[in-house]
Simulated assay, not measured.
Amino acid sequence: MPLYEYQCTECNKQFELRQKFSDEPAKECPSCGGPVQKLISQSGFALKGGGWYAEGYNSGGKKSEAPSCPSGGSCAGCPSAAA
C-alpha cells in the first residue's frame, strides 16, 4: 500500500497515512480536526546492490560472461543440462 503525506492547513502538522489506491484522500487532521492537503513528496525508490542494472545495462559495470559450454552454447541435448 502506498504511503501518502498530508499537512494540516490550520496547525501545520504533517502526517503520513498508508492508504489503498481506492481509498478517499484524508480530509481532516487527526490532531485538531482542521482541513488537510495532500503533499507531493520524493519517492523512496532506489536501485541498490548488484542485479540486472549493474550487470547488464550499466556501461561502467562488469558484464557477467556466460559459462563456456563444450557444445558451443546450445543446451539442447547437453548432458549437464539434463542433470
Rank of each mutant, 00 (worst) to 15 (best):
P35N: 14
G77C: 08
G44H: 04
S68A: 15
D23E: 14
D23N: 12
E16H: 08
E65H: 10
C75L: 15
C11F: 08
K20G: 07
G72P: 04
A81L: 06
E10F: 09
S31C: 13
D23K: 05
E28G: 06
E55N: 07
Y57D: 01
T9H: 02
K63Q: 12
K27T: 15
P79C: 06
K27R: 15
G56C: 04
N58R: 04
C78N: 08
S59K: 14
C8I: 03
F21D: 07
P79E: 09
E28D: 11
V36S: 00
T9A: 05
F45Q: 07
P67V: 10
Q37S: 07
N12F: 14
S41H: 11
K62N: 10
G60F: 09
G73V: 11
K63L: 03
K20S: 11
L17G: 00
C75K: 05
G60N: 13
G61P: 06
L39T: 03
A46Q: 10
Y57V: 02
P67E: 13
A26I: 01
P30F: 12
C75I: 11
L17Q: 03
G61W: 03
L3A: 06
E55S: 06
L39H: 05
C78L: 13
N12E: 12
G61M: 03
E10G: 07
T9Y: 01
G72M: 13
C78M: 07
A66G: 08
S41C: 06
L39M: 14
L39R: 10
G33I: 04
P35G: 11
P30L: 10
G34E: 08
L3I: 08
S31L: 15
K48S: 04
W52K: 00
C32F: 07
Y53W: 14
G49Y: 04
S43Y: 02
K13N: 08
S22W: 15
C29V: 02
A46F: 05
E55F: 02
L17F: 02
N58Q: 08
K38Q: 11
K48E: 01
G60Y: 09
Q14K: 14
L39P: 02
A81P: 02
F15K: 06
L39N: 11
G50I: 06
Y57L: 12
G49N: 05
S68N: 14
F21P: 03
G44F: 01
N12K: 14
G77T: 05
K38E: 06
S64E: 13
A54G: 04
A81G: 04
K38G: 02
